[in-house]
Design a protein around this nucleic acid. Structure first.
Length: 252
DNA sequence: GCTAAATGTTGAT
DNA sequence: TCAACCTTTAGCT
């Protein structure tokens, strides 16, 4: 049984539904999180749908939760621990149909078991849109964001401006399996490290010694020398986000 | 101590 | 295309 509480009035209805209920599971598809709960009484099960957006956080732990500050969306407490949701873009209660509606807008998630890159490939291989834009389209690939977009394109030497239909099947297969590996490592470690050990400074090559400034090839490195060829990293806006790339390593 | 930008999406114009 | 959401952090002073 969980106790649900929150500071923000607009989430009062959701809080009331969860309070006294039981959390029965969790799921994620791309950047969308789902908490399955059985409300108190005989009400049907619900999904708490959460999208953390740019600065949302789901903090959790055991023992006494921290004193709430700012805008606390939702606090769940049970004898096993607590969870605070803050600053999320989306936080709503859905039934199963609502959850399916959210998922229906999402493409394949590299992190989900048994998911291959075939569906994204049918979209990408027919599209005149740039690969850099397609990777940010959650209906093509779910879960890839601005960091993985820039880094995966660098790791495969692909020009972000190249039209999707000019990508080869071989390139896409390699990018997809690389995304699965990188994103899974990200989930495990809680950080995004995309540099290969040999491209990091000597002494910083094991996972435990990687510094943040050595973690990426191009992301947020505008003007700094490419780790592989030394050419200054470039930046441009694409799909309303800053794109970073090496004009030499990613010339095609 | 202040400002701008950021792993993102939605809804109004 | 832009503002809003609302938090944290980096990079200034």
């Amino acid at each position: 049984m969980v106790r649900a509480s929150a500071v923000q009035d607009k989430f009062a209805a959701g809080v009331a539904m969860l309070d006294g209920g039981t959390v029965t599971g969790t799921d994620a598809w791309g950047k969308h999180l789902f908490v399955h709960a059985a409300p108190a009484g005989a009400r049907p099960p619900v999904w708490l749908h959460v999208h953390l957006g740019l600065y949302g956080k789901f903090l959790h732990g055991t023992g006494t939760p921290a004193a709430p500050w700012g805008q606390l969306r939702l606090r769940l407490e049970s004898e096993r621990g607590w969870a605070d949701l803050r600053g999320a873009t989306a936080s709503e209660l859905l039934d199963e149909e609502g959850r399916l509606r959210v998922i229906s807008r999402l493409g394949a998630d590299p992190l989900r078991r048994g998911t291959d890159g075939e569906e994204p490939w049918t979209r990408i291989s027919r599209s005149r849109t740039s690969v850099g834009a397609l990777l940010m389209d959650q209906s093509v690939v779910a879960g890839v964001g601005n960091v993985y977009r820039a880094e995966i394109l660098f790791r495969h030497g692909v020009d972000p401006f190249r039209p999707g239909r000019d990508l080869t099947a071989r390139e896409w297969t390699a990018m997809w399996s690389d995304l699965r590996v990188l994103m899974r490592a990200g989930v495990r470690s809680g950080k995004i490290v995309t540099t290969r050990p040999e491209d990091r400074p000597r002494g910083r090559r094991t996972a435990s010694t990687v510094r943040r400034e050595d973690s990426h090839y191009v992301y947020r490195r505008t003007g700094e020398p490419c780790r592989v060829c030394g050419t200054p990293v470039r930046t441009a806006e694409m799909v309303a986000r800053n794109l970073y790339w090496c004009p030499r390593c990613q010339a095609s």
